[in-house]
Design a protein around this nucleic acid. Sequence first.
RNA 1: GGGCGCGUAGCUCAGUGGUAGAGCACUGUGUUCACACCGCAGGGGCCGCAGGUUCGAACCCUGCCGCGCCCA
Length: 867
Amino acid sequence: MLEKTFDPGPIEARWYAHWERTGAFRPARPEARPFTIVLPPPNVTGTLHIGHALNQTLQDILVRWKRMQGHDARWVVGTDHAGIATQMVVERTLAGQGLSREGLGREAFLARVWAWKAESGGAITRQMRRLGASCDWANERFTMDEAYARAVTRVFVQLHAEGLLYRDKRLVNWDPQFQSAISDLEVENREVNGHFWHLRYPLADGSGHLVVATTRPETMLGDTAVAVHPEDDRFRHLVGRRVAHPLTGRQLPVIADDWADPELGTGAVKITPAHDFNDWAVYERHREIGWINILNPDGTLNDSVPEPYRGLDRFEARRRVVADLEALGLLERVEEKRVQVPHGDRSGAVIEPFLTDQWFVDASRLAKAAREAVATGRTRFVPASWEKTYFQWLDSIQPWCVSRQLWWGHRIPAWYTPDGTVIVAESEAEAQAKAGPGVPLRQDEDVLDTWFSSALWPFATLGWPEATPDLARHYPGDVLVTAFDIIFFWVARMMMQGLHFTGDVPFRTVYCHGLVRDAAGAKMSKSKGNAIDPLVLVDRYGADAVRFTLAALESQGRDVKLDEKRVEGYRNFATKLWNAVRFAQAQGIGAGSEAPPAAAHPVNRWILGEAAAMVRAVTASLEAFRFDQAADALYHFTWSRFCDWYLELAKPLLADGSAAAAETRATAGFVLDQLLKALHPFMPFLTEELWHAQGQRHTDLILAPWPAFAVAPSDAADEITWLIELVSAIRSARTELNVPPAARLPLHAPPAIEARLARHLPALERLARVSALAFAPPAGPGIAQLVVAGETYALPLGEVIDLAAERARLARAAEAAEREAEGLAGRLANPGFLARAKPEAVEKARADHAARLAEAERLRAALARLG
RNA sequence: GGGCGCGUAGCUCAGUGGUAGAGCACUGUGUUCACACCGCAGGGGCCGCAGGUUCGAACCCUGCCGCGCCCA
């Protein structure tokens, strides 16, 4: 017998350990059709946040469902080495011990990182287990695994050999805090209050000055020109002349270029090629102006600037430049202005465009196949609207800077000879062979962008570049489940690399879900303090309730606004089911048969039909990735059908020696089994516990076959629908007429339905407090009347009835019926409707009209009888 | 500036051509031996606004208003 109260904690711990120990997450099914999902690998430094919980819940639902359908279901799991984040974590720890990365040296530092990973790197995967994630842990991967690293090197070398990866000096987004290049995707533009400084640049010949406006005055120390628009008559005469830089004294040419916007600022713009992406483009059209880099990697000014500014931090330099210009009388005015300032999404530091030598992938060439694969439907997005986002990004893709000035990561397999020759090779030995014996080689100090290696995840986890059986069987994967915000970071890059290196797409379907927000719709963040820790929710309400909540709220990729009240509600749902099973146990209802039991009683035939419909709805919803609809079907079947009506209607049947008792026990057992199976992907722990509580089983529920059964159509559904309506109508009338709850009343009914009523008298007694049936019109005053399914029923209330209340009640019902009938009559009187509407619609309107009319007549007649 | 999306009951959201739904919240109530994390009954909506298409529009089209996100 189950405990009186449902306590999720111990149940969860017990079943997860059991499943993992028995290999249930990946049973050997060599004959079965594979079903593969690759987990977007979480950051190894990470802890489970609510976004992971949503992402992983959805994947686990799919995997458990497919596993139950008999597939060789495999959820590829692992973590990402997260170059910057991990290096930061370890450096912070070192700083606490008075140590530094530089002090330790590269090798010793990397040893520390590995030690850290061994000790603390598993936090997130332990947390995933608490959520119930049924991953293939036996084949867990890490992006820095030796085999994985070989795949990364192979990709680098091959792309290089194909001319798709090259070294170049270009402007990159430079993070002065990390002192590394970062990807343009890792830059977040924030709009902040800034200034527009209008600066006077004297003409070199002393004949006046030109005013330029800038939001970053410190960069003027790297100016190499001033540009005006070629059509701008105000400045036409100055083109080709020179201005004297007020602080460096350099002579800067005035050039004509379309980049200068006559509408913006003064119409003249200073050009600083080494510190602005647009200015670099101007330089490429006017090579003669050259460029000057004024920054050190740490964001201080270097020796290219006049002595007083050297070594100043860029922000301090800004203040100094402005102050000095003001002192010189060259600061014409200062305007308040909202400006877009790039920030590193991890460091939060202001990003500088910085001219360095880096490695780039020619993404535009790889993008073609990636675009094509989605355009032709080889990979589809769900919801499809995300395709547009994907296309737009691929269509405007820029060279991808893949080198990072970090130590933790895949070291770039490139070596330099003393004369500067670059050799790209899969190993140092190979490089040496290429360079010739005895030539000293120095390996590139940098590592690769973490996303460069993550992009290989769908195939490198399966053994690529070896032609492994795993790869043959599980690539391409079936589904990728991901938040839409990493379509660019990850999905597009996996598509590019997957297609290029395997010739096939990495997955057939990309399901994009939304972000989890707080109850008010705000993005969750630690700094705002509105972040919800999924494990706190698990502790409070159980993993099943958290999972069910996330699934129920997940609708077509919309953002999920999570209110703890919802979790509480689904905890209540779990308890409801728990109690239903307790009741079943008390009634001798146990494990059901494999096939639907033969049932004669309408109540049993009805619930079998309802259960079959529920299973169909859940299956269809999952096929369409409608997690909310599937959850809704399960919730309503369980609560509103099975608990509220079936169990209540079954109680009299189960009572002492009724002929229908055995049949009802068999039916209830079978239906409960189907429910537990269909609910299992959503609430795995509770359902597994209840599955075993119900009797001896051949298999754990996690490996039980997904339900699929049909029941012959019957008129039982009509009969029970009528019964439910009748009971509801009686209850409603009793409440509205203030009948004392304990009072039992006889029910007067038309003789024509005596048999039907008699069949359900025990239910009516129990659920509607009916004392007896009568088939003659009731005598005396104080009759309450109801119309259900075209028949009039009466409840004699004697003197207690409130005549006025009853009259009002009947009148209201009659008016409602008449209103509906009139509406339908109006439609039927419309020749256009009869001529053009679908025949079924016309048919239904006619039937409904007749029914409403009859109901109204009966209600009016009842009203007349009241007097 | 370009793109995407959203506006339906107090709140959070389903519903995408045929008489408006759910959960929570709210009101009243509590007979019954699964469950008060419960039962029963109930109130509550010009489906953002204005046009159009259609026999018929919450749903399709256009415009407007408001809100959000992405990109520049």
